[in-house]
Simulated assay, not measured.
Amino acid sequence: EILYTDDGAVKGVATGDLGIARDGSHKPDYQPGLELHAKYTLFAEGVRGSLAKQLMAKFDLRKDCDPQIYGIGIKELW
């Protein structure tokens, strides 16, 4: 998940918990997630990642842009 400062800026990310059973109980190898605070946070999950979508919505990053249109890549078909 994305972590924010009190003024709304990104301050880092939190990793998920490890070692959780299907029923939600903690396995013997359970480790809680970590909060990683950073001066700079780089999101490298692809343009359609779940965190990227959250950032685009929160900071209105898609405002005044022309989304890319995908095609099949064939100019002429004979």
Rank of each mutant, 00 (worst) to 15 (best):
A21G: 13
D17I: 00
G71K: 13
D23L: 07
R22K: 07
A44D: 08
G19K: 04
I2A: 09
Y70I: 10
D23F: 11
P32K: 04
W78Y: 15
E1D: 13
G49Q: 11
L77S: 09
C65W: 11
G46I: 05
Q68H: 05
I74G: 06
T5K: 05
L77K: 11
C65D: 04
L36V: 10
Q31E: 15
Y40D: 04
L34E: 06
E45L: 12
E35N: 10
R48T: 07
Q31H: 14
A44P: 15
Q68P: 14
Y4R: 13
R48S: 04
Y4E: 13
A21M: 06
L36G: 01
W78A: 13
I74H: 02
A38P: 11
A38L: 02
K53R: 12
D17N: 11
Y40V: 11
I69Q: 11
A57S: 08
P67I: 00
K75P: 03
T15C: 05
M56G: 09
K27G: 07
E1G: 12
D60T: 11
D7C: 03
G49P: 06
D23G: 09
G12T: 01
I72W: 07
K58C: 00
R62E: 10
D17P: 04
S50Q: 08
K39Q: 03
A57L: 08
L55Y: 12
V47I: 05
S50I: 01
A52F: 02
A9C: 02
D7K: 08
G16K: 14
M56D: 08
G49W: 06
F59E: 14
G16L: 10
V47K: 09
E1T: 09
A9R: 10
L3D: 14
H37A: 01
R48H: 15
I72Q: 08
D64H: 14
L77T: 03
G46E: 02
P32T: 08
D17R: 02
D60I: 00
S50D: 06
G73C: 13
I74F: 05
D29G: 01
I69K: 15
Q68L: 15
G49F: 03
Y4H: 11
Q31C: 12
L61E: 08
C65S: 11
A57Q: 05
D7F: 04
P28D: 02
T41V: 12
L3N: 06
G24I: 00
Q68F: 10
G16R: 12
S50F: 10
I2H: 03
E45F: 00
A52H: 14
H37Q: 13
K63D: 07
E35A: 07
H37N: 04
A38G: 03
Q31D: 04
I20L: 11
P32L: 02
I69Y: 02
A21N: 14
P67L: 01
I20K: 04
G16E: 15
H26K: 03
G33H: 13
G71L: 11
R62K: 10
K39M: 01
F43M: 11
L51I: 00
D66P: 07
A44W: 02
L18Q: 06
G24E: 15
Y70N: 07
F59H: 15
T15P: 15
